[in-house]
């Protein structure tokens, strides 16, 4: 598998605080990579750098052989990198279909935009099916539940048709059923796309992840399968926090 995304020696500094410190990350084409780590590990900052929202102090970010640094956000999207946000941000005053339609037509020239939308495009219809929002197609996005908004956002990402999807906590705040559905959705998407998922939810991780990168204090702590990562002592130490105490208690007893 060829490399799709490559991050080298990345450094991000906010007012003297090193949010990301000498971080390397390689994501291969077709991979589904989970990014985990305690709060403040720099996961979202990393996604912000890749998508052009945050400017790094040093390092390189290469996508499909081209540097992403210094490009405006919408150009990075046009190169094929799409993202979602921690809190679902859809356009509440537009209908579900209009939200999806906008995500689908960004590649068209301005004059195509000046025409009225006629009917529902194939990509939009397919996305409605995939995320299961067919019944809400004509409703304003503001009436959707939290979970539905997250799915709509994933749907928008699907019609946007990026090579690389960056999902920032896609199941945050979802109910158990919604989590399961999102997990299935993720599997479906992963068949054709490269996906990077930032996630806190350990159960979700166990069920749906295979390759995991653990971040801590702005750098990569370790990488591997879920089992490998869970077995790693350093991970237990920083992520679960109390493993050392447990072990010392074990030694004593």
């Amino acid at each position: 598998m060829s490399t799709l995304l490559e991050v080298r020696d990345l450094e991000v500094v906010f007012d003297g605080f090193r949010a990301i410190d000498k971080l390397d990350l390689t994501v291969a084409e077709g991979e589904v990579r989970f990014l985990i780590g305690p709060n403040g590990a720099g996961k979202t900052t990393l996604i912000d750098v890749i998508t052009g929202l945050t400017k790094p102090a040093a390092g390189t970010v290469t996508f499909a052989g081209e540097s992403l640094l210094g490009r405006p956000e919408h150009k990075i999207v046009r190169m094929g990198v799409g993202r979602t946000f921690q809190t679902a941000t859809v356009f509440e005053q537009l209908t579900v279909v209009e939200n999806l339609d906008l995500a689908a037509t960004f590649r068209q020239p301005m004059r195509a935009l000046l025409r009225r939308r006629k009917g529902i495009g194939d990509a939009v219809a397919a996305a409605l099916d995939t995320v299961g929002l067919h019944d809400q197609a004509g409703s304003l996005a503001e009436v959707l539940s939290h979970g539905q908004k997250q799915w709509l956002e994933i749907g928008m990402l699907l019609v946007q048709d990026p090579h690389l999807l960056l999902l920032d906590e896609p199941v945050a705040g979802m109910s158990k059923d919604e989590r399961a559905r999102t997990g299935e959705l993720l599997h479906q998407i992963a068949e054709t796309k490269t996906v990077v998922v930032v996630e806190h939810d350990m159960e979700f991780l166990r069920r749906f992840a295979n390759q995991v990168t653990v971040m801590h204090e702005g750098t990569v702590l370790c990488e591997g399968t879920v089992a490998q990562v869970q077995a790693d002592e350093r991970v237990q130490e920083v992520y679960l926090g109390r493993s050392r105490d447990k072990r010392s208690t074990a030694e004593v007893s």
Binding site: P72, E73, H74, G82, T89, F91, E92, L102, F106, R107
Partner: peptide, 12 residues
């Protein structure tokens, strides 16, 4: 309603 969000749909 969401200028920054629109950037991530590929629009300037």
């Amino acid at each position: 309603d969401g200028e920054d969000r629109a950037r991530f749909l590929g629009y300037n």
